[in-house]
Amino acid sequence: MVQGITQWLWQCVTSPVALPVVTAFSLLMVPVPAAQALDEGDLQRLIETNECPGCDLQAADLRRLDLSGANLEGANLKKANFFYAVLDGANLSGADLSSTNLSYVSALTLISDLTNSSGQPIEIPAKFIGADLTGALLNYGDFSGADMTEANFFEAFIDKTQFVGSQLQRTNFASTFVHDIDLRGANLCGSTYWGGNDYRRSCDVPVTDLNE
């Protein structure tokens, strides 16, 4: 269903009224909870402890929750609703975020109360390493500084979202709708870009040394 919706959004974007329509649509697109999939115990665990790696939170309603520093590594978050949620410093590496609503999400670097050997505060970036974001909505979000290495954005819809200084190496942007995003300082080395070609900006090795 989401793939069909994504195709519709692609068609709409050529219209002068496309952006208002698409934005309004994304705000209204709230996943219907799937009682047979969501583990209520896992949801309660997340809310109480901010720790739920590998949990089953499919179609969970997580709107406007402050999940700063949460551990959701490898969790099933398919069709979850993170509208306006705070994911600063959260770990969603390896999570299934397919068809998830990440509109207006904040996923910035968390400044810890702990300090390093130099006495400086420890910075904890939000992590989406290897996360599956197939068909996800990422409108008006801020993922600046996030580590999204090898994340899969296949057929995702991304509009007016910031990835300033983000780690996007070897990410998959094939068939992704992208409009008005900020990639200043982002590392896109080896990512599969919109045209289906490997993107080689900010690579650590010369272009001639990369595999074709």
Rank of each mutant, 00 (worst) to 15 (best):
Q44K: 15
F154N: 09
L108W: 05
M29A: 14
R170H: 04
S26I: 11
D159R: 14
D42S: 13
Q3K: 12
N172S: 06
S106V: 03
L77A: 06
Q167H: 04
L137M: 09
A174F: 14
I122Q: 01
F143P: 09
S93H: 00
D56Q: 13
M1Y: 05
S166Y: 12
L137H: 09
S106H: 07
D182I: 12
D42K: 12
Q162A: 12
L133H: 10
S117M: 09
A186P: 06
E212V: 06
D88C: 00
V205I: 03
S103I: 13
N81E: 06
A186H: 08
D159C: 15
V13R: 13
K79A: 07
T192L: 03
E51Q: 11
V21Y: 09
L108K: 08
V207C: 01
L43P: 04
S68Y: 00
A35D: 10
L92G: 00
D39L: 15
N81T: 04
D132R: 08
A186K: 04
E155K: 08
L102T: 09
E212C: 02
G69I: 04
S15P: 03
F157R: 15
E212A: 05
T115I: 13
L72Y: 03
K160T: 13
K160Q: 15
S93A: 00
G54L: 11
S112M: 01
Q169F: 02
G94F: 05
T176V: 07
P121K: 05
L188C: 05
N172A: 02
L28V: 13
A136I: 15
V32R: 15
E212D: 07
A75Q: 07
V13F: 10
R170N: 10
Y104L: 07
L102Y: 09
D56F: 09
T109N: 00
V13C: 11
A136M: 14
G69F: 03
S15N: 11
P125V: 01
I181H: 00
T115C: 12
S166H: 11
Q167K: 10
V205Y: 02
L133Y: 05
D113G: 00
G190E: 02
P20V: 04
N101I: 13
F128W: 08
L133Q: 10
T149A: 01
T134R: 08
G74Y: 02
L72D: 07
P16V: 08
E40P: 13
C189L: 07
G185V: 02
E155A: 08
F157T: 15
L9G: 15
A90F: 03
T23M: 15
R200I: 03
A85G: 12
V17G: 06
N116V: 00
Q36D: 08
T14M: 07
S175Q: 08
S106P: 06
V21K: 12
Y104D: 05
S166C: 13
V164S: 02
D147M: 06
A75P: 05
G41Y: 04
G190R: 02
T100M: 05
Q36W: 03
K127F: 06
C55V: 03
Q120M: 00
N187V: 06
F83K: 13
A174D: 15
P31V: 15
V17H: 07
R45K: 14
Q11S: 11
N71L: 07
L188I: 03
A146L: 12
G4V: 08
F25V: 11
D180L: 10
A151I: 00
D61C: 11
A35N: 10
Y199M: 04
D61P: 10
E150D: 01
L77H: 04
I47N: 13
D209F: 04
T100V: 06
L114M: 03
T115L: 14
